[in-house]
Computed example of a mutant assay.
Amino acid sequence: MTITQLHYVLAVAEHKNFTKAAQKVFVTQPTLSMQIQKLEEELEVTIFDRTKKPIQLTEVGEKIVQQARNIVNESDRIQDIVDQQKGFIGGIFRLGVIPTIMPTLLPMFIGSFIKKYPKVKLKIEELHTEAILEKLKEGHLDAAIAATPLEVEGIKENVLYYEPFVPYIPQGMQMETSDKITVEDLDINKILLLEDGHCFKDGIINLCKASRDYGDDQLQLESGSFETLIKLANEGLGMTLLPYLHTLDLKESEKENLKMFQDPIPAREVSLIYNRSELKMQIIEALRSTIAGVVKGAITFQNVKIISPLNKKKEFTTN
């Protein structure tokens, strides 16, 4: 049994196709098939059911793949130990970022990170939380930036910052309140939301402690971008909530539509998440320190109430 054979098994398990798996690991399809067959003969089991289309794992194959993933991760740790011993911060690093964080946070830190760590080759993907967790589990991402807490077994969460929810209320819908509003002032049925799959939408629903009740609404609309929500709000079609960093780039005329919550301010927790195997920790720590350095000056709120993206609707208060 070799590490190379286990890499081949993991590739076939992922792609469910020998040809695509061979392309992924840069060998010919006959070579990959022969090595997997040799492993099956050595173990005296069948890992893949080749009679099914696409190829499926057998019952014992499922267990073998799970253990193979652990072994490959641990073998990668050897090089990781050597890199850390040498103080080397470099190599390919695959980072996932959720869509509601990518456009605001990435420009804030990416330039300084690349300049400070020129040997790190970042590969960044914009992914929803569900896809991020799946790719972390399968080893296709080294880390990710997402809204937490997620409470997923095997995933560690390192908090980067707390980002307030900021109501965007056009002039025609302004409430007769003081400069700051409360959660009770919001009507979930008048809030324009992001489409399903965005954890920011889940956070808003949890914040309002309600499920959307469309009833007989004339307009039922959800969008994939904050820009669209802002334009619709400007047309008098509702109000919305924005993450604080997104409000920094608004036009001055649009900033007049912003309101702040009373303390404790509802906020989302943003964390750097990674597999418990803690591979490439030197790069993860470099990312954490770089992001913390640039965000510290942008977000200075202290008394916040953390709104969880989980369906459990947990809340946490920090001072």
Rank of each mutant, 00 (worst) to 15 (best):
N70A: 06
L95F: 00
L141Q: 01
I169L: 03
I307E: 06
Y274A: 10
G238Y: 01
N319G: 12
T4R: 13
E138H: 09
S277M: 05
N17G: 07
T317W: 11
I47E: 06
I78R: 14
S178M: 10
F109E: 04
K314N: 13
L57D: 01
V27I: 10
K201Q: 12
D216F: 12
V183D: 05
P243M: 06
V304D: 05
I204T: 10
T290M: 10
L32T: 09
L6H: 00
V12W: 02
K201A: 11
H140G: 08
P309T: 03
A22P: 04
F301Q: 09
I181K: 06
H246T: 08
D142R: 06
K201I: 09
A13L: 06
G297V: 03
I47R: 11
S225G: 02
K16A: 07
I188L: 10
K255S: 07
T2R: 03
L95M: 05
A11Q: 01
G197N: 01
I81R: 11
K137I: 00
V45L: 15
G111C: 02
D76L: 15
I101N: 00
V304E: 03
A131D: 09
I291K: 03
Q56N: 07
V12M: 06
Q37L: 14
K20R: 12
I98N: 00
E195S: 12
T51I: 07
L95T: 00
M260C: 11
K86H: 07
Q85P: 00
N189W: 01
Q37D: 13
I110L: 09
D80S: 12
P264E: 07
Y168I: 09
T300A: 13
T317E: 14
I78M: 13
L150S: 06
K116N: 13
P54F: 07
I191Y: 13
Q56Y: 07
P309Q: 04
Q29N: 11
E40Q: 15
Q37A: 15
D187A: 09
L186D: 02
R69V: 01
Q84T: 13
K231W: 05
A131Q: 09
F165E: 00
